[in-house]
Amino acid sequence: MKLYKSFLCGLILFFSALSYADSSNTNQGSNSGNSKNNEKADHTCDGNWINPITDVCWQCLFPMSIGDTQVSQGSSSLPDTENPSNAIQQCPFPPPIFRRVGIAVGYWEPIAVTDVTRNPMCMVNLGGQKIGGLKRSKVGKATKTAIENTGVFYHTHWYQYPLISWLKLFSDDLCMQGGDFDIGYLSELDPMWNNDLLSIFVNPEAIIFGNPIAQAACIVDALAAEAYLPLNPLFWCAGGHGSVYPFTGAIRTEASGMNSSVLLSERMNFKLHRQGIITDTVPYNTAVCFSGQNPIVPKDRYRYHLVNPTADANNCYPYGRGVMRWQAGKEMPNSHKNYGHLIWRKRNCVVF
């Protein structure tokens, strides 16, 4: 029996190697005209696991509120959003109870982590591991010479990261995001992320806002995000980072790698809202009992901070706030442009 198993394993390995060699030769022949481009696109995959103690900005949980009364500002001066006016809420409940009375609370919770990378299937926040299985996927680029296009392309991954649930900071499961750490979205598997025309299916309004007048309005949003919070009515703007449209990994002109990584994290956030994957709570009486889908991301209810390549655990920033004030010293000149960000969301809920 042992001899039979050894023979079978050897046979499998032989045919696997033969198949790999054949596919390699085929790819080499079909891509001979692009060999130089492929060499340039062979970026290194690197990154670090997130330490939930030292790499997370715990002061970003604040401000906390009960009703519309702020009970803790924490050690930061981060701005807060609107909260329900009544501290006591009555929420529907299945019979025979029908109604439950609880206390409306508000706080900020970490919900997701994003990878932004030029290397397909490079899991930056999983220690820089690369997942195989795809024969070919579009490789990101970044060119800065005067004679070349200065556009860039990145892949983006979205991880579910319910840190509050792991730590059991609340006894009520309705007041925190549940679940396990999981990969929620891979742009390599989404053909719309690579194609501006295909992305029109999920963001048809991009045609309306792709003009100089609409983009000039983003100056106001950028100033608002720098001073306090972004403006939700200007939903097509990502503050000082640029435009959220189209929902692809392409950026026409890159100001910096950090800026591109934050912009693409915000684009992915908006895209997943549009596709009904992310839910939000609302800061209104009675409605605070529920959460639901929103096709337009409520920008003022999201924050972010850097976790890769260097964790910035002392600060977090509102959606759309520029990177100029914090990006210095966070990236080395020889960086391979692999980034990670922790995404925070405002949660209003009722504790029973």
Rank of each mutant, 00 (worst) to 15 (best):
A224Q: 01
Y302G: 02
V262N: 05
G102K: 03
H43T: 09
H43N: 12
N334K: 07
A250D: 11
V351I: 15
C122F: 02
N348H: 07
Y304R: 06
N314T: 11
P246C: 02
C122S: 03
T114Y: 12
P95T: 04
M64A: 11
A142D: 15
P95D: 04
Y20V: 06
N259L: 05
T281F: 00
N149S: 13
L263W: 09
L197S: 13
P212E: 00
G74R: 00
K141I: 11
A112F: 07
G133S: 01
T156L: 04
E39G: 06
L198S: 09
R136Q: 14
A217L: 10
P94S: 08
D22V: 12
K337N: 14
R118P: 08
Q59C: 09
K346I: 01
F209L: 07
L11S: 15
N86S: 14
A87L: 14
I97S: 12
M268D: 02
N203Q: 07
N211A: 02
A250F: 13
S35L: 11
L78T: 08
A250H: 15
Y154L: 06
G292R: 03
I88E: 15
D173Q: 09
K330P: 15
W326A: 08
I278D: 15
Y284H: 09
I208V: 13
S199V: 00
I147A: 12
I277A: 09
N308G: 03
H336T: 09
A87N: 14
G10S: 01
I278Q: 14
S75Y: 13
A112G: 05
M332D: 15
L78K: 11
F290C: 01
Y161K: 06
Q275F: 12
L13V: 14
F7I: 09
Y319W: 07
V101A: 11
N334F: 10
A313C: 04
I278E: 13
R136V: 08
S85V: 11
C289P: 00
S65A: 15
K168A: 09
C45Q: 02
A87I: 10
I277F: 12
A238L: 04
M121I: 01
M332R: 14
L126H: 13
R118S: 12
A214I: 01
I207L: 11
D182S: 08
R118M: 13
A216L: 06
H241I: 02
D196T: 10
I219V: 11
Y107T: 03
Q215D: 05
S243D: 03
N34W: 10
S76L: 08
L342P: 01
Q160V: 04
F15S: 13
Y339W: 15
G240Y: 02
L174Q: 14
P333E: 04
G329Q: 00
G140R: 11
Q177G: 10
P233R: 02
G340P: 03
N149Q: 12
I103A: 02
V282M: 08
A206C: 09
G10A: 00
Q59K: 13
G210I: 04
K299N: 02
C175G: 01
Y4M: 08
I183P: 08
T26N: 12
L174V: 07
K130L: 12
S24L: 10
G257V: 13
P92G: 09
C60P: 03
P246N: 01
D172S: 09
K330E: 15
T310G: 05
L18R: 10
